[in-house]
Design a protein around this nucleic acid. Structure first.
Lengths: 137, 137
DNA sequence: ATTGATAATGCGAATCATTTGCATTAATAA
DNA sequence: TTATTAATGCAAATGATTCGCATTATCAAT
C-alpha cells in the first residue's frame, strides 16, 4: 500500500485498504462513477467494505480536495479525481453519456465576475446538456 | 384564475388552484426556492395542498419549460422561473447566498464545442462557488 | 516486533428527498 | 348540468445518504 495517497492523508488520518481501493476505482474506473457504482465495483474486489464506508470516504476525499463531486441533475452525485486543467462536462439528454471538454473560462470570467460582483470565485462547475452525434441521427 | 399560465397548459392539462399558487410562489417568492420551502409557503396561503402535489407540479413545470431546476451541490434541488437572458449563479461557500450574474458564454462556447465535439448544446448550467464580500472580511 | 490509543469500519436503523398507488375531488368539454 | 378523467391528498414505498455503536485495525510509541 505504497500509494502517493499516503502523503495526502491529514495527520491523524489513516490509510486503509478501503480508502486505497476506492481511490483506485475512481481514478482508473472510467468516468464519473456514483457512490453505488463505486460500491459494487469495490465489492467485486474485496467483500470487506460497506456502502457507509464508501460515502464516508467520498466525503473525506472531497474535503481533502483529491476528488470532485459532479451534479448532473440526477438524484445522486458523481465523482472524478481532481484534474490538472480546467475542464467541464457535456451530458447527452438522450443516452446520458458524459463527455469532457476543456475550455478556458476561468481566468476571464473569474476576473470579470470578481470585479463586477465583488465575489471571490474558488470553484466552478459547468454542465451543458444536449445531444451527442450518435443520438442526433 | 386568469393567469397567462392558462395558455401554457398542454391540451388535456388543467389549471388548478395549486398550480397557480405554486407558480406565483416561485416567481415572486424571491430566489431559488426548494420544494420544501415552496410547500411551506403554499401551506400558509392555502391549507389545501400537499407536498406530493408540489413535487408533481415542479416536474410538470420543468417539462413545460416554464421553470428551471438548479443544482447547487446539495441533496435537494432549487427552482426558478425561466428567464429571458442567459444567466448563471454564484454560491457563497460560507453563507450560502446565491447571486445571479449574466454572462454571454453561450454563443461562443456553444459554437466551439459544437464544432470540436460534434455535440448539440441545448442547455447550460454554470455554478461557481466562492466567497461573497460580506463573508470575505 | 508488541502494544495501546483511537480512527475507521460494518451493520442496521434513521433521516431526508422524492415518488407512487389509490380512492376522492374538481376542472373542463359536451 | 353533467360526465369524463386529470389532479389532488394521504400514506406508504423507494432511493440516496447519514448516523450510532460495538468491533477491528492502523500507526505511533515503546
Amino acid at each position: 500500500m505504497k500509494l502517493e495517497l499516503t502523503k495526502l492523508m491529514d495527520p491523524g488520518s489513516r490509510l486503509t485498504e478501503q480508502r486505497a481501493l476506492i481511490y483506485k476505482i475512481i481514478s482508473d474506473g472510467g468516468q464519473h462513477l456514483d457512490a453505488d457504482e463505486i460500491y459494487s465495483r469495490a465489492r467485486q474486489k474485496s467483500a470487506r467494505i460497506s456502502l457507509a464506508t464508501v460515502y464516508r470516504t467520498l466525503q473525506k476525499f472531497k474535503q481533502m480536495g483529491i476528488i470532485d463531486e459532479l451534479h448532473f441533475g440526477q438524484e445522486h452525485h458523481h465523482y472524478e479525481t481532481r484534474q490538472e486543467g480546467e475542464h467541464y462536462h457535456l451530458v447527452c439528454r438522450s443516452c446520458g453519456k458524459v463527455i469532457e471538454f476543456t475550455y478556458p473560462l476561468s481566468s476571464k470570467i473569474k476576473k470579470d465576475v470578481m470585479e463586477a460582483r465583488d465575489f471571490k470565485i474558488v470553484g466552478a462547475e459547468v454542465n451543458m446538456t444536449g445531444y451527442c452525434r450518435r443520438c442526433r441521427k
